[in-house]
Nucleic acid binder design. Structure first.
Lengths: 172, 172
DNA sequence: TATTGTTATACTCTATAACTATA
DNA sequence: TATAGTTATAGAGTATAACAATA
């Protein structure tokens, strides 16, 4: 088995690909060639989206044992940090439509992780709380998200991760 | 009607909200209060997602006159920069599932913006090209995306926009 | 009248599987 | 047998509209 660092082996690969490409270029077009980005290269949204998608993919993969998705996780954390608030308030803070939040909360309620109590002053609104089971689940969930952030720090470098975070936080 | 820039009116709004909040704080809990982020504050993905969503929202709003969405735009640019390539190659570069790309391309073909020609060596694959109408449409589309990027530079500051872009580009 | 939560619908995007025609 | 493209289906997320209960 090849025990050299992954970077080294990947470099070999690229060289081998190029050799094959050059050898075959008279016969078939090289389908492994990097495409030109063209005008896409000037769009922040494109690169922002690429990183966001790969971060969410790792999140979902890492959290699979608890079957928790990013939106569910963010709602659990916000209820934990702000117990007793209404759906309207939670939804506004996370920019989740109230219709969507209603169904999402039904899911969390069905799993026994949250409960809705009648709000004190207002018969229309529910006050949201974690159950004991929800608190326990959230502890296990947080253990997994810590692994996710560790992966991110490894991929981005922890300095760049923090720099990115600071830049992005300025637009809450 | 208030014809001042939206930012100006939004600022008025925040000030008014705070005044109301302070006046009523003795009677009712302040529902406009910023919620605590809790553990969400340590997650890069959360802030990444927030900016990405607002950038895409502005893109879709700005491009509404041409009815073009981000994925369609990225495909048009990639075909422009790499005419004659196959769907498989374009899809891989943009990380779009071939099933999804097939339908997306049908839409662009139906609008007369792209065409698929039989590929030279391989009867299975199509070679993708912009039509003249597609080139003309793309010119108008680019004029709109320039407005979108100008908005971004205004919101983020053009220095921060470039800094962010450089940071994100390192992970293509 | 306005707001809170709910259900329902439609559309986009993602993820699969199955199919065809070519290779 | 593998690959390119297609169709179909299911789920998540977004955006609306309409409704009941309450303010």
């Amino acid at each position: 088995m090849d025990t050299r660092p992954k970077r080294q082996r990947a470099a070999d690969h690229r060289v081998a690909d190029r050799r094959v490409a050059e050898r075959e270029s008279a016969l078939a077009p090289d389908q492994t060639e990097r495409l030109k980005l063209g005008a896409l290269d000037g769009h922040l949204g494109y690169f922002l989206r690429r990183l966001q998608v790969s971060v969410f993919k790792d999140f979902i993969r890492t959290l699979a044992p608890m079957d928790v998705r990013p939106a569910q996780y963010s709602v659990l954390l916000l209820i934990e940090a702000n117990p007793g608030r209404s759906q309207a308030v939670i939804g506004q803070a996370l920019d989740i439509e109230r219709a969507r939040l209603a169904r999402l909360l039904h899911g969390l309620e069905g799993r026994g992780w949250i409960e809705r109590r009648a709000a004190d002053g207002d018969g229309r609104s529910h006050s949201l709380h974690l159950t004991r089971a929800g608190e326990k689940a959230l502890m296990r969930i947080k253990a997994l998200t810590a692994r996710h952030e560790a992966w991110l720090a490894e991929v981005l470098g922890s300095k760049r991760r923090l720099l990115l975070m600071d830049l992005l936080k300025e637009f809450g």
